[in-house]
Amino acid sequence: MSLAVTIARWAARILPPHRRAWGEAMAAEVAAIDNPRDAILFAAGCLWAALSERITFMKAFVFAGRLGVGLVTVLYALAFLYFTSNGMGRDNPPLHLPFLLGWQVSMGLSHLAAACFLVFWRPRPFLWACAAAAVPALALTIFGLAGMIMGKLASGTIVISFAWPFVPISMLMGAAWLFAWLEQAPKKPAIA
């Protein structure tokens, strides 16, 4: 098999499954070209066409977006795991309270899982990871509200002081929804 036909066969394999017939068409066309130089140039163009069919601009944009949001979420999750052993800064040494440790670890692990499932886009596990992240967030909110009601926390504390973990979770879910919507949206004009 000539180099040109081999390249055309690669192109056929790269094409999305619903375009495989076009890959066969390209390979058959390359096989019919008598001039070896022309055949290689034609096959290289077919490879380029296959790559551009596979990696559309929107797919690349969505992947970059998921990767960016995922990396920020990983940093956020790692910060929680770091806090379990090092505390939250010089003025907040680590408190080895089971509730606090459990809260920090569950926040860290659930966000880490959510980030991974976002980048590799597994919608159902992603939603489960977000739900798992919402549990410690809810626990903090309930803890804060209970403290306010019982008057054991500083007066003037507002609900958002305790409900803040919901803000990054909401942003993460919003970004995931936006990327899923962009991926589903029509990508091509009426005629290219």
């Binding site: 375009r19 390209m26 066309e29 163009g45 077919c46 380029w48 066409a49 551009s52 005629i191 290219a192």
Partner: peptide, 17 residues
Amino acid sequence: KSGTLYPLLIRLADQGL
């Protein structure tokens, strides 16, 4: 070039042209 031609042919075929 074939890299330009084939995507055009694919779109035209998709649109029934």
